Structure formats: structure tokens, C-alpha cells
Computed example of a mutant assay.
Amino acid sequence: MASKRISLKRLFQYYDEVLSLPHKSEVARELRDEDDLFLLLVYSDMLGIPNPAFYYTLELYPYILEKFHEWHIRMGMEKSPLTGFRCC
């Protein structure tokens, strides 16, 4: 009975991989776009866009500093586009 469960579990894992294989790049692109949107929302106050949740997102800055650095390098900016905010 245990070997049947293991083989059934493997079958479900294989089925899931087969279905998701052609869409891995699309999923990765969507996740990257969501991360970019989140960074925009968090740093919007520094960009001059009013952010009503600025007080709550302020404590997230130390945790997403590395993501911000990767983002502005990916966007083709050698230095941080925000004045007074150094990440490099």
C-alpha cells in the first residue's frame, strides 16, 4: 500500500511538472513584474508619488534593499535613481 502511495505521489508530481514546464518563463516574468510593482509601491514616496501606506512600508526598506539594487541594475541604471538613497 505504501509503494502505491509513493508511486501515485510521483505520478502527480510528474503531471504537475509536465503542465508547468512550458510556462516557467511566463511565470518567472510575471513574478518579476509583481516584484517591480511592489518596489514601485514601496519606494513611490521617494519618487514623488504620494503613498498613503508610507508609514507601514518604511520598516520594509532594510529587507528589500538588495532587491532594489538588482532592480535598478536590471533597468540599466548604474547608480540608484533616488537621491538620498544609496544602495551601491
Rank of each mutant, 00 (worst) to 15 (best):
H23L: 06
Y14Q: 10
T83G: 10
L60G: 04
D33N: 03
L19T: 03
M46D: 06
K67S: 12
F68Y: 09
Y43G: 00
E34H: 13
T57N: 09
L47H: 08
V42N: 00
L47D: 11
R86Y: 12
A53G: 04
E66S: 13
C88F: 02
V27M: 09
E78W: 03
A28E: 15
E70Y: 10
P62E: 05
H23D: 11
L21P: 01
S44V: 02
L19M: 08
M77R: 13
L82H: 06
E59A: 06
E17C: 04
D45C: 02
D36C: 02
W71A: 03
L82V: 12
P50M: 06
N51S: 04
M77W: 10
S80E: 04
K24Q: 15
L40C: 05
L65S: 14
G84H: 05
K67R: 15
Y43N: 00
L41P: 00
P81I: 05
P52S: 09
P62H: 04
G48P: 01
L60V: 09
E26T: 11
F68P: 00
K4A: 10
K79H: 12
Y56F: 06
A2S: 07
M1Y: 08
E30M: 13
F38E: 08
A53S: 11
W71E: 06
H69P: 01
E26W: 03
L37A: 15
L60T: 14
L11G: 09
F54W: 13
R74S: 11
L40A: 08
D36I: 02
G76K: 07
L8C: 05
L11R: 15
I64K: 00
L8P: 00
S80W: 02
L41S: 07
Y55F: 01
K79C: 05
K9F: 06
